[in-house]
Amino acid sequence: MPDAAPHFWAVFWAKLPYFLSVLLGAAGTTIKVMLGALAVALTLGLVVALLKLARFSPLRAVANVYIEVMRGTPALTQLFIIYFGLSDLGIDIPPVPAAIIGLGMNGAAYVAEIYRAGILAIHEGQVEAALSLGMTPVDAMRFIILPQAIRMMLPPLCNYAVSLLKDTSLASVVAAPEIMFYARQLVTETLLSMDIYLIVAVIYLAMSIPMGRLVAYLERARRAWQ
């Protein structure tokens, strides 16, 4: 095909505005799923972390089982169970909420570990010093532990957020109208698979690379502060 390459690019530039309008529109759902799942993961993760630090061993066991199961099975399988599986049992959850719940529950297991590591990293001596100064445990948590722990946890949490952004692409298989879902529809419409997936790649890179820079900046700030 002697003029395949120029032909490819001619079509590409001609269709670009249309593709971008469709895909960037879908980016809104991508962000919605990501923020929703992030919220679920951050809250549920806190619960799991507290359970894991509990003194009562059955509670710790529950947390451990949860973490093992969530980290030992693929996110895709979990999404399938929530969307297709529950619907089979009569519980119908629409695509976007299903994706948010699925990715959020999966993420909670990772976030719980981040919380735990952050809290444990704060030297015991600090708690003792705070208490001997006359602070109540709650005060110590508020003024000494949490401010430091949050600074420590910010970089890994941001890393998790970036990977969550990429995982939203899985939501396409449960028909959530995010970028990948629309991309595949466009491909069946136009058969221009290379063009469209290249644009999709660029869109993801445009979102994840700035986030990655932010993480690097936070890492450096954290190290300087230490």
Binding site: S169, S172, M180, Y197, Y204, S208, G212
Partner: peptide, 11 residues
């Protein structure tokens, strides 16, 4: 690392 694995597979 900036793209989902799914996108790489599709590409």
């Amino acid at each position: 690392r900036g793209m989902p694995a799914l996108v790489i597979l599709f590409l």
